[in-house]
Amino acid sequence: MGWTKPRTSPPPSAPWYARTATTAGRPAVLAATLLMSMPGEYHVAKFAGWTDPWAYGMPFSLSAYAGIAAVVAATRPKGARGRFSATAGAAFAIVLALAAQVVAHLVNTGHMDHNQAWLIAITSMVPPAVLAHLLHLAATPVPAPTTSVDTMATPPVVERAATPVVPPPPVQAPAIPPAEEPRAELEPPAEEQPPVIKYRDPRCAAIRPLYNDGTRPGTAAMRQALIDAGHGRVGDSTIRGTLRAEIEEHEPDLAELPPAIGRTA
């Protein structure tokens, strides 16, 4: 079974206000948090030496990148190529975004001096690191989800016609008519045809005539009959366990017939 995307919305049975809060609340919360994060990240960029308008790119390099990496990590199936990198990048981006907010507020409240070499160096590395990781995620192919459904082919069940089961008549020597009888009466009487049966497996119809000589056919004879009828070569277990079993299920008396001479069971 292939990977299935988990449900991200409440079920239809949830109250209307829960569904509304989930569908409308998520975009509102996303917009609010981005707006609240932008000033701090902007000030961190200014501390590192960027001037306007370039300093406004820092919020996108941190907050937006954290969201992109988190979505990529969540949507890639387990074990897929690039999922670990996306997860690590999302965690690192969230840490950077949090650190930017903390540093900006510490500086603005006078608890920290912004003119420090390590702070300027780390902040300067953010844009190229974000660009490199986004290009890496874009170059990593996303495997398409696969689904597989196991189905079992079952032959249609066809009800047989409501006809009486009549065993084939025993083979009898034709009676010799008198010499003065007309020629038309010298011909042996026609054999009674077997009952019309609708088999579940149509290949049974190619084997049923082998019973007409009053014997139970063997595997070799049945296989040859199937080949002559255009069904190809069929396995022994299918011939005996499926086809012959279905014929004798409809006509139980056929199973009691003597085996054909030289037959293979």
Rank of each mutant, 00 (worst) to 15 (best):
M1V: 14
W3D: 09
T4N: 12
P6F: 02
S9P: 00
P11V: 08
P12D: 15
P12R: 10
P15Y: 04
P15E: 09
Y17G: 00
T20W: 12
A21K: 03
R26S: 09
L30G: 01
T33H: 05
L35C: 04
M38I: 03
P39S: 04
E41Y: 00
E41Q: 15
A45E: 01
A45H: 07
K46C: 08
K46R: 15
W50Q: 12
T51S: 15
P53M: 06
M58K: 03
L62S: 08
G67A: 05
G67E: 03
A69I: 01
A73K: 00
R76A: 02
P77N: 07
K78F: 10
G79H: 04
G79T: 11
R81Q: 14
G82Q: 08
G82W: 08
R83F: 11
R83T: 04
S85W: 00
A88Q: 13
G89T: 10
V102S: 07
V103S: 06
V107I: 15
N108K: 14
G110I: 04
N115K: 14
W118M: 09
I120W: 03
I120V: 13
I120A: 15
S124A: 14
V126P: 03
P128Y: 06
V130T: 15
L137G: 00
A138H: 08
P141G: 10
A144N: 06
A144G: 05
S148P: 01
T151P: 05
T154E: 11
V158Y: 09
E159S: 14
A161G: 14
A162I: 11
P169I: 01
V171R: 08
I176S: 09
P182T: 07
E185I: 07
L186S: 11
V196I: 14
V196L: 12
Y199I: 08
P202V: 10
R203Q: 13
C204G: 01
R208P: 00
T219M: 13
M222P: 01
L226K: 03
L226H: 06
A229D: 10
G232C: 09
G232S: 07
V234Y: 02
S237T: 12
I239G: 05
I239E: 02
A245E: 13
E246I: 05
E249K: 07
D253S: 14
L257C: 00
I261L: 11
R263A: 15
T264Y: 08
T264S: 13
